[in-house]
């Protein structure tokens, strides 16, 4: 074991934790302290030098962890996983672009100033021969419901210039 900790802690009832904790290289390349398993909370002491486990991982029952992994998953359990930033399990990745993190496509119908932008799927087919497209997005015809919502927003004064 080295820059992952594949926790095999016996959880009782014949169950094994079987969770892979990923110790990301820039944080842990040279690091000494206690890291907790994201799933079962078992605390391990590790001392890493140049990415190698100089000491540990040694279980430290009853002690408090210094740090959590950024991400952990269970390859033998349908890839159940813990995303970054779950309190008491994973470390937050402090440099997110928003307060929410999706990791998948954000379905956006309006820009931040409230005007329609084609950020959602599926879009109705609109191409001509060989995939050709014109230079006019006929939103009123192609996506009437978004057009309606836009009119509603205009009425409410939610559409801004900036």
């Amino acid at each position: 074991m080295c820059d992952i900790i594949w926790c095999k802690k016996d959880l009782g009832d014949g169950k094994v934790c079987d969770t892979v904790n990923y110790l990301d290289p820039y944080c842990f390349w040279n690091w000494e302290g206690k890291v907790a398993c994201a799933h079962c909370g078992t605390v391990y002491y590790i001392h890493m030098i140049q990415g190698h486990m100089y000491a540990g991982p040694d279980e430290k029952p009853g002690e408090k962890p210094d740090i959590y992994p950024l991400y952990a998953d269970q390859p033998n359990n349908g890839y159940f996983n813990y995303l970054p930033g779950i309190e008491g399990r994973t470390r937050p990745y402090t440099c997110l672009p928003r307060h929410i993190y999706l990791g998948k496509a954000d379905m956006v119908k309006f820009s931040i100033r409230g005007r329609p932008v084609r950020g959602w799927r599926p879009q109705p087919p609109s191409a001509g021969i060989a995939g050709s497209q014109g230079f006019f997005w006929d939103i009123e015809k192609l996506s009437p419901e978004v057009w309606e919502e836009y009119q509603e927003r205009i009425r409410k004064g939610e559409v801004k210039d900036w």
Binding site: P97, Y101, L102, G103, K104, A105, D106, V108, V117, R118, G119, W120, R121, P122, Q123, P125, S126, A127, G131
Partner: peptide, 11 residues
Amino acid sequence: FNEAYLYPLHD
């Protein structure tokens, strides 16, 4: 982070 796309790419 796989979050921002504009559609369509192709019909």
